[in-house]
């Protein structure tokens, strides 16, 4: 903890944050812009938020997106963590391939092939089929993140605990899991992000009336993406931020791997 603050490091990191937030500022600012065009600043207004409140379709789609992202990220985090832990053991040759290939596969192909599968087993397309598809492409991201963390974890810790007579489960719960937590958390966040933003795979696996926010937004592309979309994006970011910060306040231990 005694590392001196490195000025150069801080400046370059700040610049990267600037890069990340420059477009975001535009998204948020334009949600208050009094022009349907989303092109230049005209004047301040709340009206897009007002309009949004009455836009059943958009709010329903946002709700669908949140449900899907939460469930898929949750399931993918559990499965991906298991895969990541198993992968750090080199003996398994097949698993890394199975985990990496979904990341490597073009989204369209995955969408189409999952569609074929769902049709083959006669499954009704809807929220469930979207979730199953999202979990599929999220597992790899979590697994890689966990594996990266795991691969340089000191195996001596676990071995020592086992030698001292701790059960595998206790070892996992009290040593491995806390140590892995930052990797799991990073993977889970990625999964959530990927799920909430996915368009291509969702398009193919969505059924009647299970529109998600990206589907809704893409349907507006042709005419104009109105500031309502900026407004719903702003609210969504705010909501997720509040939920996550709130959760980390409530149980800091889980989030910090302490």
């Amino acid at each position: 903890m005694m590392i001196k603050k490195n000025l150069l490091l801080w400046i370059s990191a700040a610049l990267v944050y600037l890069f990340l937030y420059l477009p975001l500022v535009i998204v948020v600012v334009f949600s208050f812009n009094d022009s349907r065009l989303n092109a230049e600043w005209v004047g301040f207004t709340w009206k897009w938020y007002g309009k949004l409140l009455h836009n059943r379709e958009m709010l329903g789609a946002a709700m669908n997106s949140l449900i899907i992202a939460t469930v898929s990220a949750g399931a993918a985090t559990i499965l991906g963590t298991l895969a990541g832990m198993a992968m750090s053991q080199n003996r398994l040759r097949f698993l890394p391939l199975l985990v990496l290939a979904p990341i490597a596969m073009p989204e369209i192909l995955m969408g189409v092939s999952l569609l074929l599968l769902f049709i083959m087993v006669n499954m009704t397309l809807g929220l469930l089929s979207i979730m199953l598809a999202h979990i599929t492409f999220c597992i790899g991201f979590v697994a890689l993140s966990v594996q990266a963390r795991m691969s340089s974890m000191d195996p001596a810790l676990v071995e020592a605990a086992r030698d001292l007579g701790a059960s595998p489960w206790r070892c996992f719960r009290e040593i491995t899991l806390p140590l892995l937590m930052p990797g799991i958390l990073a993977g889970g966040l990625m999964a959530f992000t990927l799920s909430i933003d996915d368009f291509v795979i969702t398009f193919f696996t969505a059924g009647v009336g299970s529109s998600t926010l990206p589907l809704q937004i893409y349907s507006m592309v042709k005419i104009a993406v109105t500031p309502e979309v900026n407004a719903v994006s702003t609210l969504l970011m705010l909501l997720t931020l509040v939920v996550i910060v709130g959760a980390s306040r409530l149980s800091p231990a889980i989030f910090r791997g302490e």
């Binding site: 189409v112 569609l115 074929l116 769902f118 049709i119 009704t124 397309l125 193919f204 059924g207 009647v208």
Partner: peptide, 11 residues
């Protein structure tokens, strides 16, 4: 067409 012909209808 991709969606309809795959059989995923309900429309």
């Amino acid at each position: 067409m991709a969606k309809l012909l795959a059989g995923a209808s309900g429309y």
